[in-house]
């Protein structure tokens, strides 16, 4: 058995914290774009290349226009991701998005991305991720909580839609004996396992507090 006797890192931050990342004067457009990404991430949102010019006018009215500086936004973003450890590009079904991991983890950014891609994809990808990475079904009602914020009946409606749509054939449901609906992906969880886990999560754990 190995212990970790060292207290290295106790009381220290591993990374620069939100808000402290950019303290020197920003004298290039790229630095301003980086700051924009970080600001959006701090608000729990991703940013696309197409959004930058509009935001630019609001945030930096005294600075040269984003599209008049001679630098291509796409090129700047590529360079920023390469040069800044905290900035990342996220590709999904739509345009690429950018975020700073000073303010959100990759896992959270994925959820925000799926949210942008619409409720069907948000539900399906969340269910798949839970089945794949955690080997667990998820209760339908987690989608009523932040950061998902869907209505319970909406989720039920979306599930009905998904059953008739291509690309969602792996999303399945089961109910616990306490009538709570659980979702899982048949691509990653066997039905009998999912049924047993749903019962354990909803009922069994209550008997094993």
């Amino acid at each position: 058995m190995k212990g970790q006797a060292s207290m290295a890192g106790a009381g220290k931050e591993d990374r620069t914290r939100p808000g402290d990342a950019v303290v020197r004067p920003r004298d290039t457009m790229a630095e301003h774009v980086a700051a924009l990404i970080r600001k959006r991430s701090a608000a729990g949102e991703l940013i696309t290349a197409a959004e930058i010019p509009d935001l630019w006018e609001v945030e930096y009215p005294s600075f040269p226009d984003a599209d008049g500086s001679g630098e291509d936004i796409a090129g700047i973003l590529t360079r920023l991701v390469h040069e800044n450890e905290d900035l990342h590009k996220l590709s999904g079904a739509g345009s690429p998005c950018y975020y700073s991991d000073l303010h959100m983890t990759a896992a959270y950014a994925q959820i925000v991305l799926h949210k942008q891609e619409g409720p069907l994809r948000l539900i399906a990808e969340t269910v798949r991720q839970n089945s794949r990475e955690y080997q667990r079904p998820v209760a339908l009602d987690i989608f009523t909580q932040p950061p998902f914020n869907l209505e319970y009946n909406q989720v039920r409606d979306y599930l009905s839609i998904m059953t008739a749509m291509a690309g969602y054939g792996d999303i399945a449901t089961t109910s616990s004996s306490a009538s709570r609906i659980y979702l899982y992906s048949t691509a990653h969880l066997e039905r009998e396992h999912a049924v047993m886990l749903a019962e354990w999560l909803d009922v069994g754990q209550a008997h094993n507090p």
Binding site: S41, M104, Y108, L201
Partner: peptide, 21 residues
Amino acid sequence: NSPQPWAEFYDPKSRWNASRG
């Protein structure tokens, strides 16, 4: 117990159930 911007993982059955709001 729910996705948080600072968290890599979450578990709906976690007893760490507080968050902003």
